[in-house]
């Protein structure tokens, strides 16, 4: 990739950063449209496997963005991607949260966090459902996966086991064909 294209890539990520309300994953369709469709820097399979890879690795979901950058332009692509996607949202978050902290007791702002709490909990439940959907729709893995989901919920609510232990157990169970 040429230097001019690398700059284009950087500017693209800067803009996407400000659009990523609800998380970086919500800009994935737009990245697909531009990088795969318009510029042809990636093909479909590379795009999908980049996201799957990032989700299998530990850490925030946003690390799928540097993986895309890496696939397109090696290490410099990864660097451009991670700085581009993080810089604008970081500055905005710090500015807005400081502004809000100075006015925390204002009734309109108190109502804001109270009113949004149930919607946030609903979104978490919906995310759990969407994550479970590929298993629920696949008869070969449905029973095992649903049992594992239920066991996880019980273990989290009734024990002090760390999530990583449950993830590891799930991985082992899956590797030996239980899911």
């Amino acid at each position: 990739m040429s230097a001019a294209e690398l700059v284009d890539l950087f500017l693209r990520f800067l803009a996407l950063s400000l659009l990523s309300i609800g998380g970086a994953m919500s800009t994935a369709p737009e990245m697909h449209r531009y990088f795969v469709g318009e510029r042809g820097w990636l093909n479909d399979a590379e795009f999908t496997s980049s996201i799957a890879l990032a989700q299998a690795a530990p850490g925030p979901n946003v690390i799928f963005v540097p993986v895309l950058g890496y696939q397109m332009a090696g290490l410099s692509g990864a660097l451009v991607a991670v700085i581009g996607i993080m810089l604008p949202s970081t500055l905005l978050t710090l500015g807005v949260s400081r502004w809000r902290n100075r006015r925390r007791d204002h009734p309109a702002l108190r109502a804001f966090s109270a009113g949004l709490a149930p919607v946030t909990i609903g979104l978490l439940l919906a995310t759990g459902w969407i994550l479970a959907l590929p298993f629920v729709n696949d008869p070969a893995h449905r029973t095992g996966a649903l049992a594992l989901i239920a066991l996880t919920v019980v273990a989290m609510l009734r024990t002090r086991l760390a999530p990583i232990v449950l993830i590891a157990l799930g991985g082992v169970a899956g590797a030996f064909g239980a899911v």
């Binding site: 978490l124 995310t127 759990g128 298993f135 919920v153 989290m156 799930g170 899956g174 590797a175």
Partner: peptide
Amino acid sequence: GALRGMGAVAAGLMVAMAVRLA
């Protein structure tokens, strides 16, 4: 298989957290 197992646990973790925060 391991990725499937880890995915199912991730779904369960999300639900459990929502229940606790509720």
